[in-house]
Amino acid sequence: MAKYLLLKHYRGAPASVNDVPMEQWTPDEVSAHVQYMRDFAARLEGTGEFVDSQALSPEGTFVRYDGEGRPPVTDGPFAETKDLIAGWMVIDVETHERALELAGELSAAPGAGGKPIHEWLEVRPFYGVPSTITE
């Protein structure tokens, strides 16, 4: 098995097909979207492939070391960041193809009009463990 991160960006990726901002959906459409995510995670737990899922608040502060004995430099939050990470799901699957298949399904979460939003998800493999037998 190999672990993959399915990364959800708010910006940075090309615009998705059904690109209506969430606050302009109907309340039922928002609920349907949230329910889809929940069902998806529950189904993956059932298949033994679910590891973790988290959503991030859009707030964020950049922090930088500023030398010995000085407080760290902070900056932001910025009105527009180029690439805002909205959340992620971690899965543990048998193959890379399976990771792509699941990302495709997650991207089909319903949005405005109850239609799939076709949002872009980035699929990133985790590093594995070193194997014992090397020669």
Binding site: M1, K3, E45, T47, G48, F50, V51, D92
Partner: peptide
């Protein structure tokens, strides 16, 4: 050992 939640492993085993 395989760094997954217990619920996930339980499902993997029961499947």
């Amino acid at each position: 050992a395989y760094l997954v939640p217990e619920a996930t492993m339980a499902q993997r085993i029961s499947r």
